[in-house]
Simulated scan of single mutants.
Amino acid sequence: MTNGMEFKSHANVAPWKEVADMMRRDSLTDQAASIERIIDRQKNIDMQGQAVRKLPYYKKLIAKNYLPHLRRVEYTLHYNIYRTLTADEINELYQQDYKQLSKFEFFKLYRSETDSLKRQTIMRQALEVYPSFMAAANDLSASLISSRKADPSLLRPFAGEKAPQEVNINQVIALLNEGLFTESDSVARFSTYRQKPFELYGIAGMDATYSRAYNNNDHGFGAHLGMRGQFTFSDITYFYLEPRVGVAQDNVAQTAT
Rank of each mutant, 00 (worst) to 15 (best):
T86R: 13
D88I: 10
L70Y: 02
F190A: 08
Y110R: 01
A213M: 11
Y240K: 12
A51H: 06
K43S: 15
Q100H: 08
A126V: 05
A208Q: 04
I122P: 09
H10P: 06
T232A: 02
K17R: 15
K99A: 05
A213P: 02
A11R: 15
T209Y: 03
L175M: 09
P157K: 01
E128K: 14
P131K: 02
F239Y: 12
F107V: 13
H69E: 11
Q249R: 11
L101V: 00
T257G: 08
K59D: 15
R25V: 15
D207N: 05
P68C: 07
Q165A: 13
A256S: 13
V129A: 07
A188F: 02
K99I: 00
R53V: 00
T192P: 04
V129P: 08
A253K: 07
H224R: 03
Q95T: 00
N168I: 01
G246P: 04
Q254T: 00
R37F: 07
D115Y: 00
A208R: 08
G160N: 03
L28D: 10
Q48S: 06
K59Q: 15
H224N: 04
L225E: 03
A137Y: 00
R71V: 09
Y210G: 12
V245G: 11
N170E: 04
K8M: 11
L85N: 13
P243H: 02
Y75E: 14
Q48D: 09
K60V: 03
R25L: 15
Y214Q: 14
S186C: 02
H219W: 12
Y58C: 04
D250Q: 12
L101W: 00
T86V: 07
G229P: 04
E6L: 15
V167N: 05
D40E: 15
S9P: 08
F106K: 08
Q171L: 07
P197S: 01
S132G: 06
L93Y: 00
E6M: 14
R71N: 13
F106G: 10
Y82H: 11
E89S: 12
S184D: 07
G202S: 06
N170R: 02
M206T: 03
N168R: 06
P152D: 09
Q171G: 04
T29A: 13
A174K: 04
I45G: 10
M23D: 14
Y240A: 14
I173K: 01
D88A: 14
Q96S: 09
D250E: 11
T257Q: 08
T257P: 03
Y214M: 14
A14N: 05
A248P: 00
R212Q: 15
S34W: 14
E161A: 10
R24V: 09
K118W: 07
D151R: 00
H78C: 09
G49K: 12
G222N: 03
Y82C: 09
M134D: 12
R189T: 11
H78M: 13
A150Y: 03
L117N: 12
G222T: 02
L67F: 02
N215C: 05
Y82M: 08
S184W: 00
K118V: 13
